[in-house]
Design a protein around this nucleic acid. Structure first.
Length: 608
RNA sequence: GCGCUCGUAGCUCAGCUGGAUAGAGCAACGGACUUCUAAUCCGUAGGUCCCGUGUUCGAAUCACGGCGAGCGUGCCA
């Protein structure tokens, strides 16, 4: 693909982008393209070329920059620097920016005028709901699959990633105007129920269950799990329990139902604490009666075939060997790598359930897109799943949003079955306690209720921000101090910036009263307005490659810019227009921080 | 064997749809609190962006080939 064509594609319409958001960058790009269209070399431009303007990488060069001259130089047969100055010369920035400057090999640098910044600030102030973030012009119905823990086992730190990333993506997509349906596809029917059933019947302490069901369920699960490792015959017994359940045994079904019910109570407690909610909890068992007919249908359509007693799906040969997820290369030979949808004993597999789930989400929930926030080890599974869906003629946009692992100190995956796992609930409790200690030290005069509330917001926020501020694919080693850090680039830093915006109005004794126009004088003010205006350029990019950490980086920079403003620009000691302007900037910063943190699923407090 | 993902400062990580001198935080060192909240700010120091080749006016970023790590690769999910 040509570089120019690639740029064109990203500029015009990524699937979940507002098409022409009005931001400083797009306003500049429009003017730049007008300039190009009127230029002497307009006829030499590549078909459909649109110049791109982006935020300057280094503010010493300006606020925005364009590389258009360097991209076009060859095709227009001009020296890039000369071309750049020709463009700059005829560029009409109006009141938006000063005359562009040329630098380096042919960069065109733009500096936004103080008037334009003031105007931008006023626009943001009058847009309290969206704060300059344009709504998608092509709203999609998106079913978002995330979290999806197994029931009967409490969530451990490994579930943090899917849960927090998925929740944030759902908030961002909704904020952009998409119709998002969140679905917690819990593992409520898998093989683990064999063990749970046996344990329930043989190891359960009824009194303990009555007193506090979740730990008792965990104890039983762990004990059975340990026993099966040493005892072959017990594994068979567990399997028997599972078969009985699946063939409708009344007693086992009753235990199963009770078990799900109790587990959900435990899960909901954690989701409440995390401020995460779902529109649906359609677990694996919801699809039980659709699996048989689905397999029959796939066989009838010649998509699936019998092999070694199992029903499997092979390659249909339409993809190249390299791209085909149903083929693998072994010792130089191409071998089949089928997806199994029914075992030789008649049992179904998760590929089967996932196919049935796709059907339901498309036909009953009306999904245009399905997003799965699931660990990267499942890449092959989703490659196959999506390919099968395509073969069945389904049109929904299917997105696998993978994330890396949380490792133990030995750099191995943290796993439930090997014991030594850290429970999610414990992480949250510890985090809140650590926040509480800092509050007791820094602000001892707050009431106990306030301290508790603030510690909760900061503790939970710290855990979420630690996750969302890094790229989702990065593996990381679980470490209390890293995950629960309260200094530096962390949730408390961002929340502190918000608290400072509120402290001003508390001192003032009244809420923000509005302002007619902005009078920007100090550099720190202009820097702050520019940053605020870029909220609208940042939020849509989160869905570009499903990277909430881009928003986290933006918010961190905004908080830093505000803290600098705070140091440099007294507010209440000033008078007149300067004071009014600074009050308005505090108000605006508070709104953007609160909104942006909200998109990450992080709450704010008035004091800390 | 093959596939996927990762490899950036002492540590933890950004940056990867190619752009200018590769950025933060932590840790270390030096400064700033009669204050609108110092959970802050200012400064110093810290780099073969795993290695090599290629594409390009330009590569941490793209392609190819290595090296290293983790995961996956037909009856678990």
């Amino acid at each position: 693909m040509l570089a120019a064509a690639g740029k064109l594609a990203t500029f015009i319409s990524l699937p979940y982008h507002p098409v022409m958001a009005e931001t400083l960058a797009t306003l500049l790009a429009e003017r730049l393209n007008e300039t190009l269209a009127k230029s002497s070399f307009a006829g030499d431009l590549p078909e459909g070329f649109r110049a791109h303007v982006e935020q300057a990488q280094n503010r010493q060069f300006g606020d925005y920059q364009s590389n258009a001259a360097m991209i076009l130089a060859k095709q227009v047969k001009k020296n890039p620097r000369e071309l750049a100055s020709e463009i700059a010369e005829s560029f009409d920035g109006g009141t938006l920016c000063d005359k562009p400057e040329i630098a380096g090999p042919g960069f065109i640098n733009f500096r936004i005028t103080t008037d334009a910044l003031a105007e931008r600030a006023a626009i943001l102030l009058n847009d309290p709901d969206h704060l300059g973030v344009e709504q998608a012009t092509n709203p999609q119905t998106i079913v978002l699959d995330f979290s999806a823990p197994n029931v009967a086992k409490p969530m451990h730190v490994g579930h943090i990633r899917s849960t927090i990333i998925g929740d944030s993506l759902s908030r961002v997509a909704r904020f952009l105007g998409h119709n998002v349906i969140t679905d917690n596809h819990i593992g409520d029917w898998g093989t683990q129920f064999g063990m749970i059933l046996w344990g329930w019947k043989n190891l359960l302490d009824e009194k303990a269950l009555e007193a506090d069901p979740i730990p008792e369920l965990l104890r039983v699960y762990r004990e059975v799990n340990a026993k099966t490792k040493e005892d072959e015959s017990l594994r068979e017994e567990c399997k028997g329990q599972l078969v009985a359940l699946q063939s409708g045994d009344k007693e086992n079904l009753a235990i199963w139902e009770k078990c799900i019910e109790l587990s959900k109570i435990g899960l909901k407690k954690i989701y409440d604490q995390l401020d995460v909610s779902f529109d649906h909890w359609l677990g694996e068992s919801f699809y039980n009666d659709q699996l048989g007919p689905l397999v029959e249908q796939l066989v009838a359509e010649n998509i699936a075939t019998e092999s070694d007693g199992a029903i499997v799906i092979f390659s249909d040969g339409t993809l190249s060997e390299k791209e085909d997820p149903f083929l693998k290369s072994e010792d130089g030979e191409i071998k089949p790598q089928p997806a199994l949808i029914q075992k030789s004993d008649g049992g179904f597999l998760y590929a089967t359930t996932d196919l049935a789930t796709i059907d339901y989400r498309i036909s009953d929930l009306g999904a245009d897109a399905l997003w799965y926030v699931v660990g990267v080890p499942q890449q092959l599974h989703f490659d196959q799943l999506f390919q099968i869906s395509k073969r069945r003629g389904q049109k929904a946009d299917l997105q696998f949003i993978p994330f890396g692992s949380i490792l133990g100190k030995d750099r191995k995956m943290l796993r439930t079955r090997e014991g030594e796992t850290v429970q999610l609930a414990d992480v949250l409790t510890e985090s809140i306690e650590r926040a509480r200690k800092v509050i007791d030290e820094k602000n001892p005069d707050l009431s106990d209720g306030e301290k508790h509330e603030i510690a909760t917001v900061i503790g939970i926020g710290a855990v979420k921000y630690a996750e969302l501020s890094q790229f989702r694919m990065t593996d990381y080693i679980f470490d209390w101090d890293t995950m629960l850090a309260l200094k530096g680039n962390t949730a408390p830093y961002l929340i502190n910036a918000y608290v400072r915006t509120r402290a001003i109005f508390r001192k003032l004794g009244s809420d923000f009263a509005g302002i007619d126009s902005f009078t920007l004088t100090a550099d720190a003010e202009k820097n702050l307005v520019l940053k605020l205006a870029q909220f609208g350029e940042t939020v849509p990019t989160v869905l570009n490659d499903f990277r909430p950490n881009g928003l986290a980086t933006y918010l961190y920079e905004l908080a830093t810019t505000y803290h600098k403003f705070w140091e440099a620009c007294p507010v209440l000691r000033e008078e007149g227009a300067v004071r009014e302007t600074r009050l308005a900037l505090c108000e605006l910063t508070g709104r953007v921080l609160k909104c942006g943190l909200g998109l990450l699923g992080i709450r704010t407090t008035e004091k800390m």
